[in-house]
Write a protein that binds this DNA or RNA. Sequence first.
DNA 1: TCTGGGGTCCTTCAACGT
DNA 2: TCTGACGTTGAAGGACCC
Length: 487
Amino acid sequence: MDAFYASAEQAAKPSLRGKAVVVGGLGPRGVVATASYEARRFGVHSAMPMGQARRLAPNAAYLVPRFGLYREVSEQVMGLLRQLSPLVEPLSLDEAFVDLEAGGVADDAASARAVGERLRADIRRVTGLTGSVGLAVSKMLAKIASEQAKPDGLVLIAPGTERALLGPMPVRVLPGVGPATGDHLRRAGITTVAEIAEAGEDELVRLLGKAHGGALYAMALARDERSVVAERDTKSVSVEDTYDVDIHDRVRVRMEVARLADRCVQRLRAAGHSGRTIVLKVRRFDFSTLTRSETLRGPTDDPAVVREAAARLLESVDTTGGVRLLGVGVSGLADFTQEDLFAQAHAVLQTESLAPGAEGEDAAMVPVDVAAGDGGPDAASGAGEAAGEPVVPAERRWPAGHDVRHAEYGPGWVQGSGLGRVTVRFETPDSVPGRVRTFRTDDPELEPSDPLPLVAVEGDGTDAGASEDGEAPGGEKTVPMTGGAAG
DNA sequence: TCTGGGGTCCTTCAACGT
DNA sequence: TCTGACGTTGAAGGACCC
């Protein structure tokens, strides 16, 4: 998909179409997730600090990401892709590889191109967004083609032309060449793909190591045998938070680590997993990052166990000077727990009789504060929790870009908030650009609401609500498609 | 005014078992 | 019993990707 998050926001908000839109973290340490093509003209791009983006494009709209909406659109697109082939490999919410040959929908360049164009039309019809398609005989080339196709295009790399096409390109087009490897190669006098091929495999391996060097050399020759893999097992689950202000208080650090451990276990359980290795991540005030890990005897999904392991790991880390980020992760995933094994052994021994009260060894039930209400992404209760109600700043309660509904004025979205006021623009994906009104942040007539569908559901004039889809689950998304063109 | 969040894979080193 | 070779595992860090 092209500038996916920003395009979705523009589709949802008529007043932003054709305007510079920047989606990302809005806190003092936020970075840009996606910038619309209009914003890119000002030099704004992904991973740029928000402060810098604001200086470059002060008049752009700055919005917080709405992953729920993006996920829905993504599902639609992936559904469309799965109609083409059983072999669909999602890379992210907005990209996937499709093996067209395996789907039997294309066996030469012409048929692949036709499929690609039809897909792009379907994506636009179903989601209202544009997607770009890259067609080639391998994943690497399909990806490069799709980058060239953006925005809103289709590029096919004809079999036999690959090396001539790649040769003059900068090394950074090859997957796996980031800033560090790019620098490394540049210092060795290698700046283009052709120069990698000329350098030879031995030299590449000497420069970059066996795995990386060998793989890069092959790619430079346009050799990429990787197949499209539909199902990928998750290897780890983690959560992390960067704090607006460095945390110096050790007690607070411990509290945050416990909270992150709980969130991590929630995610772990939601995915139906357990894990054996607990990882603590700490980014210090000077941006130096360190990790500490501990492997348990068996996999667990017990929050108390993960919390205790994370706390133990924290004891080996010096946090004086302050920490800017904390994270907790679990790897070595399984789909059962140590406790399951105990339970099984227990059950075998028990045969018929009723188990006595105490369950094996799950001793300490540690009281966890269940944090009423939202498990929202921004934990950040941060600073002032006076006795009683936590203080939630308006810009967190009414995040910029999120949908709301007003009893009198209907659906709209938050344009900004602060100082006890929230400004709302009343418009919907299929309306004309709407008007702006300002309310008190505690206005009882105003409430958060779910995103409206970007494309009106047929035969449903009204509400966004639960569209009982009578329709095929057809979804869609844009993808570098591989394997399509027969060669 | 610096540098998010969630992942994957690779490399290096040390410890340990055979 | 000691020693070396080798494989495996775990820990930590780095690079990369979207």
